[in-house]
């Protein structure tokens, strides 16, 4: 019995609009509880090579920001418990921040992640989102000092995205005592822990220390191996079965 939820991360529109739906369906059918959808951005500074390439491919095929709402609707049809939307600050800024938060809340999105809105340079994003029925999730990293951890706590976030190591997404992370020490500092919040998670051993190690484990690049790599929806389903299904138990 798995005692940690899985949040699977997909770049919207990748590897194709139909392939994306197949990937989402494979994840839900494998028992994944939470879907995180990334709106692709031309300059994704926190992402590793797999998600960067996926974002480019989606944009090349003509993905528009408004297309995210059909992805969200599809995710809800599949029955995910939570749907979170991740993107970069410029997409939110161009959309209009409050409008973005409102439209996401109206679509029953449960959480928003914008990694380049840090705690103190957020144009009021976290405060504004607090007035809506969704969680704006700030990002925590192991190198945060006590001052920054206190600033984070002062935001009173319900949820936090914990990046388990330095660097960008995609490279495998060792879960060890240091990871646990870091997660203990976040024990007041509901922690979604990610960066470099691709195997059930990592999930087992995170059990009871995080609410959910985030699996992103691992699935994106699988989805990138084909563009036919049937193949994408099979690849993503195989990849997620390395993690579910």
């Amino acid at each position: 019995m798995r005692r940690i939820k899985i949040m699977a991360h997909l770049v919207a529109g990748f590897p194709s609009p139909e392939g994306w739906k197949a990937a989402a369906a494979a994840l839900r059918n494998a028992g994944v509880e939470i879907l995180e959808i990334q709106i692709p951005f031309s300059d994704p500074t926190a992402d590793g090579p797999d998600i960067t390439a996926a974002s480019e491919a989606s944009l090349r095929q003509g993905f528009r920001v408004r297309d995210i709402f059909s992805c969200i609707a599809f995710g809800r049809e599949l029955g995910f418990e939570e749907i979170h939307v991740m993107t970069y600050a410029n997409i939110v800024h161009r959309y209009g921040m409050e409008q973005y938060i409102r439209d996401m809340a109206d679509s029953k999105v449960t959480g928003l992640i914008v990694p380049d809105y840090p705690i103190e340079d957020d144009h009021g994003f976290y405060r504004t989102a607090a007035g809506y029925p969704l969680a704006a999730m700030p990002v925590a990293v192991p190198t945060m000092n006590s001052t920054r951890l206190r600033m984070l706590a002062d935001l009173k976030p319900v949820c936090v995205y914990a990046a388990l190591r330095q660097g960008v997404t995609g490279r495998k992370t060792e879960i060890d005592g240091e990871t646990f020490g870091f997660l203990e500092k976040l024990s007041e919040m509901r922690v979604y822990a990610g960066f470099g998670i691709s195997h059930r051993d990592q999930l087992k190690a995170l059990e009871s220390r995080a609410y959910a484990a985030v699996i992103g690049s691992h699935i994106t790599r699988a989805a990138s191996r084909s563009s036919s929806p049937e193949e994408v389903y099979r690849e993503v299904d195989a990849a997620i079965h390395q993690c579910v138990y």
Binding site: T45, A46, A89, P115, D116, Y117, P118, I119, D121, P138, V139, A140, V141, T143, M144, N145, R148, A163, Q166, G167
Partner: peptide
């Protein structure tokens, strides 16, 4: 201006 970066770059 500002410093719109991921938390990972804040320390550096």
């Amino acid at each position: 201006g500002g410093q719109f970066v991921g938390e990972v770059l804040k320390g550096a």
